[in-house]
């Protein structure tokens, strides 16, 4: 299962494996053995392809910053599952159904509006609790099925997104 690293505008699908000594980088058809040892704070020594590099290296979340041969580079790790989620098309993510019966408190979007993942679409009330329904992915609203004040049953279709036309690249 390949993981992705973004480096500048490019994406590189790689795998990492452990060997008897050190590790291997799998990139396309190439398998490149290497060893890396930590030598103090944010320092590491990397042996690869017959060369030894003294690195400065730090991670922050999914970002890896590396100083290699006098130059700084930033790489971003994209977890395979996150990658698939980001590129997922169609299916359940096109529709948002009511998790329980209730009524609509507020509608924040209208049909045809572009929304981003996580954006609040509407607020519903059920069992004396208000729940905000958010967009499961980036997309365009196809239908808003209810207006403020209307009630609905469990599993009722609340909002539908237009099916994504094409794979949306790897945007995370």
């Amino acid at each position: 299962m390949k993981s992705t690293f973004k480096l500048g505008a490019a994406e590189h699908a790689i795998e990492l494996s452990r060997a008897a000594h050190g590790y291997r980088l799998h990139l396309g058809d190439q398998v490149i053995p290497f060893e890396m040892e930590s030598c103090g704070a944010h320092r590491a020594r990397l042996r690869i392809a017959g060369h030894t590099h003294d690195l400065r290296l730090i991670t922050a979340g999914d970002d890896v910053f590396i100083q290699l041969d006098g130059e700084a580079h930033a790489l971003r790790y994209v977890d395979p599952l996150a990658h698939f989620e980001a590129t997922a098309r169609g299916g359940a993510a096109d529709t948002i159904r009511a998790p329980m019966p209730g009524s609509i408190v507020a509608v924040a979007v209208q049909e045809g509006e572009a929304v981003t993942r996580g954006q609040a679409l509407l607020v519903m009330e059920s069992m004396k609790m208000e729940t905000t329904i958010t967009a499961p992915r980036d997309g365009v609203i196809a239908t808003v099925a209810y207006e403020k004040g209307q009630t609905f049953e469990r599993d009722a279709l609340l909002v539908a997104l237009q099916p994504a036309a094409d794979a949306e690249g790897g945007a995370a």
Partner: peptide
């Protein structure tokens, strides 16, 4: 390769 290896 060195960058990807170190990052991985």
């Amino acid at each position: 390769h060195a960058l990807l290896a170190a990052a991985a």
